[in-house]
Computed example of a mutant assay.
Amino acid sequence: MSNPESFIDEVSEEVRRDKLYAAMRRYGWIGVVAVVGIVGGAAYNEWQKATSRTAAEALGDSVLAAISVEDPAARAEAIAAVAADGDTAAVLNLLSAAEAEGEAGRPTLEAVAADTTLSRLYRDLAALKLVLMPGAGDADARIAVLEPLATAGAPYRLLAEEQLALAYLDKGETQEALDRLQQIWLDEQSTTALRRRANELIIALGGTPDAA
């Protein structure tokens, strides 16, 4: 019985082998595609990283070259000429506006403040800088700009509160100004410098810094 059993085993093995080869011929391409996909994806990922790194280095070199220009007006123009988009462009525009003399930077700040595609961090900063510029308008105009900047969660909330206090002082509304300054004094997020300025103004206006 051993020979027949051995023969049957050999036949069964051949059948299994034939089925395996048939399956490989039929579905083997799936494995090849998977390998090519993995290798290709890794290569593309590395290429993308290298491209991004090269672009970032080129941008950094351009910014360094621009801010190294000695003349302020020429430096502002050089910064504005650096090619960028999105929030990176907003940062460059803010730098350019800071270098511009007089009213030259106002249009750039207005454009950044009005661009809703940018992060609020940069839009609010541009709006705050506009309020701080000479000729920013009367107290009511400044208050209209500052109120949204002083809402909960706003990135420059406390700085906006300080400017609101000054605007209300310009209107002669001393108590409103004191209330704003007290909020700054009592706020745990106030910096030492900001709290000191609020303290000095409260005392100058006849108030008590530790009053709730």
Rank of each mutant, 00 (worst) to 15 (best):
P155D: 06
F7P: 01
L186I: 04
V33G: 05
T191A: 11
R196W: 06
L92E: 03
G31I: 06
V131E: 04
A136V: 13
L125D: 11
Y168I: 03
A80I: 00
I184W: 05
P134G: 04
A65H: 04
T151S: 13
A58W: 05
S52G: 00
D9H: 12
V15G: 02
D179M: 13
A100P: 06
A212H: 10
K171M: 11
L159A: 08
E101K: 11
A144P: 03
W185E: 05
G41V: 08
K171V: 02
N93R: 15
R25H: 10
I30R: 11
A80M: 04
E200S: 12
L109S: 10
D9W: 10
D85H: 04
T192I: 12
P4C: 00
Q175C: 02
T192R: 14
A127S: 14
K171S: 07
F7L: 15
V112W: 03
A127G: 07
R53S: 13
A160L: 10
L158I: 09
Q48A: 14
A141L: 03
A114E: 08
D71G: 06
A98D: 14
A76I: 04
L205V: 01
T174I: 10
A136M: 08
L130P: 11
L205S: 01
L166M: 10
N45T: 06
A65K: 14
W185I: 02
W185L: 02
E162C: 00
A98C: 02
P209F: 00
V63D: 07
L205T: 04
L92S: 05
E14C: 00
E176D: 14
T88E: 12
V69T: 13
V35C: 04
A43Y: 13
R16W: 04
D179P: 03
A136G: 14
L159C: 00
R106T: 12
Y156A: 09
L201P: 02
G31S: 09
T191P: 06
R26V: 09
G86H: 09
A212R: 15
E161P: 01
L20V: 11
L125T: 01
A50F: 02
A177E: 10
R142G: 03
R142N: 13
E5H: 13
P134Q: 07
A84W: 11
T192H: 09
E5T: 15
V35A: 12
G137I: 13
A150N: 07
E77I: 05
A136Y: 08
A150Q: 08
I143P: 07
A127N: 06
R53I: 05
Y156I: 09
T54E: 13
L166S: 09
I8E: 14
A104N: 07
D187K: 03
L181C: 01
G105V: 10
A204M: 03
A126D: 06
A141N: 04
V112T: 15
Y27L: 14
E70A: 15
S96L: 02
R53V: 03
Q175Y: 05
I79N: 03
A22Y: 07
W29K: 12
W29S: 12
Q48I: 13
G105M: 06
A211C: 02
V82P: 06
Q183N: 13
A55Y: 04
A139L: 10
G28S: 10
A22L: 11
V32Q: 03
